[in-house]
Design a protein around this nucleic acid. Structure first.
Length: 339
DNA sequence: GAGCTATAAATTCCCACCCC
DNA sequence: GGGGTGGGAATTTATAGCTC
């Protein structure tokens, strides 16, 4: 049943029915109740396409992820999306996930907007200099960055304190007696990797240790990257006594690589993985020490709330949220070998 | 084939009507 | 006269159908 048919059933205009159902104050309570009851009885639901046409909104928000990033196999990303979807669904907003080749991301953002498919965006995996953010800022499209960038004072964002988290990891290893700590990190064009590198340097500096650039190993943002980094570090003439992986994708590969080299954790080398080993990995049972960003689903809720705040016109500086990561003890940090 | 018109379904601005 | 109530018409974009 459509609006026209419902209006014929009730003997009221389409206007009155629409306003009664949408909570307008200039409809009497008696008429509203009558309309609501008839809508329930006849199973009336506004036609979504027509509604979107009339209000000029898609009532959907988008996430564009580059193909090959591995996000859809990432339990943390999926948990965040789950939380985001739950919160948006309660507001009758859909979450549209679009994949795009990395070189075609901006075109995908543009296409979804032009076709009226989304009203706003969540921008994941922010980069220090991020053309997606520059584009959305120019187009004046509501968006929330999931992560910060170098120039993010005037945008809404949600992030974890990556620098503090990595400094915390280094402090834990120092406390266990390690002085020779390596970092395996994702490309520092990604903002989180840049901040975690700063945290690593800050952690050493706080302990009065000199910078150890030879212990900083850049890797591809893949499990293979972590695996190769394990070999690079541990097959060198003087391997480190401890390693921190700056994310769980690299971390899984790193731990697999260390085990394949016949090394014992923590007797031969101590390991901390930022974000931890995902529960769906066979390596999860090792109990790898971690820096954790608790409750990804709540992060999704927060992102939805920030986007809502943006569309309600709240000031941007009230829409910048930084959560603190925590240290999760495990069984892969011990005293340095030979100690 | 080009150009114009009608139509779809819902929202919403503006206004008319009714009754106290 | 004014508040409460409800209706007319414009609006949105894509598309089918019609005329020339």
């Amino acid at each position: 049943m459509d609006l026209k048919q419902l209006s014929q059933v009730l003997g009221l205009s389409q206007t009155t029915i629409s306003r009664a159902l949408n909570g307008y104050a200039d409809v009497s309570e008696r008429t509203r109740e009558r309309v609501m009851a008839a809508a329930r009885e006849h199973g009336y639901r506004p036609n979504g396409a027509a509604r979107r046409l009339a209000v000029g909104r898609s009532e959907a928000m988008g996430i564009v992820y580059p193909t090959g990033s591995g996000d859809l196999g990432d339990p943390r990303f999926l948990a965040m999306v789950g939380g985001l979807t739950d919160r948006c669904a309660a507001r009758n907003i859909d979450v549209l996930i679009a994949s795009s080749p990395p070189e075609g991301e901006l075109a995908t953002y543009e296409r979804l907007l032009r076709n009226g498919r989304v009203d706003g965006y969540i921008v994941p995996h922010t980069r220090r200099s991020d053309p997606r953010i520059d584009y959305l800022r120019t187009r004046r499209v509501p968006f929330v960055a999931y992560g910060r960038c170098d120039d993010c004072q005037d945008i809404a964002w949600f992030d974890f304190d990556n620098e503090a988290g990595m400094a915390l990891a280094v402090a834990q290893l120092l406390r266990a007696g390690h002085q020779d700590i390596a970092l395996v990190h994702a490309p520092t064009s990604l903002n989180f990797a840049h901040q975690r590198l700063l945290g690593y340097q800050r952690g050493l500096q706080a302990a009065g240790l000199p910078p150890q650039p030879q212990r900083v190993v850049p890797a591809e943002f893949t499990r293979v990257g972590g695996y190769q980094a394990a070999q690079t570090l541990m097959q060198s003439a003087r391997p480190p006594t401890a390693i921190v992986a700056d994310n769980h994708v690299l971390g899984v590969g790193l731990v697999r690589g260390l085990l394949d080299l016949g090394l014992r954790l923590p007797e031969d080398v101590s390991v901390i993985v930022y974000d931890g080993i995902p529960a769906d990995s066979p390596l999860h049972s090792l109990g790898v020490n971690a820096i954790e960003q608790p409750d990804a689903a709540s992060a999704g809720h927060c992102l939805a709330d920030l986007l809502q705040g943006l569309t309600e016109g709240r000031p941007v500086d009230a829409l910048q949220v930084l959560w603190q990561p925590v240290y999760a003890p495990g069984r892969t940090v011990g005293p340095p070998r030979g100690a």
